[in-house]
Nucleic acid binder design. Structure first.
Lengths: 211, 211
DNA sequence: GTACTAATGTGACAAAAGTCATAGACCAGT
DNA sequence: ACTGGTCTATGACTTTTGTCACATTAGTAC
């Protein structure tokens, strides 16, 4: 990973910080589908996404999972910061959706840079802030909305994030992420198709228009 | 508010910080039942709880509410930090449960102290961290658990926080906070009573034993 | 093509939660 | 003790979601 590549994804970072990152961090690559972290793991470092796309989701004891949010280049996993500080295990899973490159920064530097670099300080706070908001939004949806609305929102989010109208997921995968069952999702999708909101294909959904 | 009172609730703060707080912050008092913040409000300051008890909950467009967590003396509202930084409105309501005193710290100092006082820095990060975890826990409950389990957890939490086995809430109030309906809560409580877990009185619930 | 597998469609049913209607219980003020 | 208001209890019913069983379809491998 070169200085210029880092600088490109994190334009707000001052030059010295970028150099510090370059010399003190490790690049890790994950192929699509690979897990970046899993429940019960300890963190000794925090991760910045340089390239690719990462899906972060929650998992309970029975193996039910639950989609929380995507991480894109230029973002960091607040969870790895949260847990890193306390040396605690997480209840979080993260999976690479596309081939992904991350910068892995040891905990000790993360802390040191907070006072050393203003841009790092703002970056960390902004990461907490934005993830906090995502979680609040997630809570809103599961607390207040019915499955059909949640499904629509889920699809909308995917279109935004993937930058494509075609979502390459099976009904089963969607059901898992919304912690529902395939039949329910199939039925709702069928309804949406009849309303002209989506077009269903095998293993993918083409979004026509959502409110 | 005297230096010693602040120091008592926030023992980790160094002396200079406490003095800085004393001379640059404002004390605000709320009587039980009063709102500390409401949806749509802007923040120009962050609040530390010195005395009392504050309930933080989420509200949607239709006025449904949803309990998130309690704030106790020695804690701060992460939301007010989150929003303060970005000068954004919150979707959060906070209400004093007991008579409450808070220290209101202007945004500018909050930022300045981050680099000036190590203990402040840790306090802010720890606040983010712990609230983040509370939110994750909340998500777990609404995503993975049925109403009966959520109710039990809710009661347990209240016993812990209030430090009393008697919870002074009506079924309707509980229903609101769990975003359910009174009848449902009444029925579940009745079942719990038959199982010997609680004893029901008018306007209050006495907890006998929960797992 | 045939055979196999994964994905999807669908009807029937069960369970959980929400809604409606109504009645009783409790408390406060007079 | 009467009255009005709030809180609680309960049965009947609806809606939503989850589950089960099985049929159909689409893609893949041979």
């Amino acid at each position: 990973m070169s200085v210029s590549e880092i600088q490109q994804q994190f334009p707000a970072f001052e030059k010295e910080l970028v150099q510090d990152i370059e010399s003190n961090s490790e690049i890790r690559s994950f192929t699509a589908g690979e897990q970046l972290m899993r429940t019960g793991q300890y963190f000794k470092s925090t991760m910045l996404i340089v390239e690719g796309l990462v899906k972060v989701y929650r998992e309970d004891d029975q193996g039910n999972e639950f989609f929380m949010y995507y991480l894109q280049p230029g973002q960091a996993c607040a969870l790895s910061m949260v847990c890193a500080v306390k040396q605690e295990t997480s209840q979080i899973m993260a999976k690479a959706v596309k081939d992904t490159e991350v910068i892995s920064i040891p905990l000790s530097y993360m802390d040191e840079w907070m006072s050393k670099y203003k841009s790092w300080y703002h970056f960390v706070l902004e990461t907490y802030r934005s993830r906090f908001e995502e979680l609040l939004e997630t809570i809103d949806h599961i607390a207040f909305q019915a499955m059909d609305e949640r499904l629509e929102f889920y699809l909308k989010k995917h279109v935004q994030t993937l930058g494509s109208k075609t979502i390459p997921l099976s009904h089963q995968e969607i059901a898992d992420e919304l912690n529902s069952s395939r039949e329910v999702i199939s039925r709702l999708l069928k309804k949406m198709e009849q309303m002209g909101k989506v077009k269903l294909q095998r293993n993918s959904i083409e979004v026509i228009k959502l409110n």
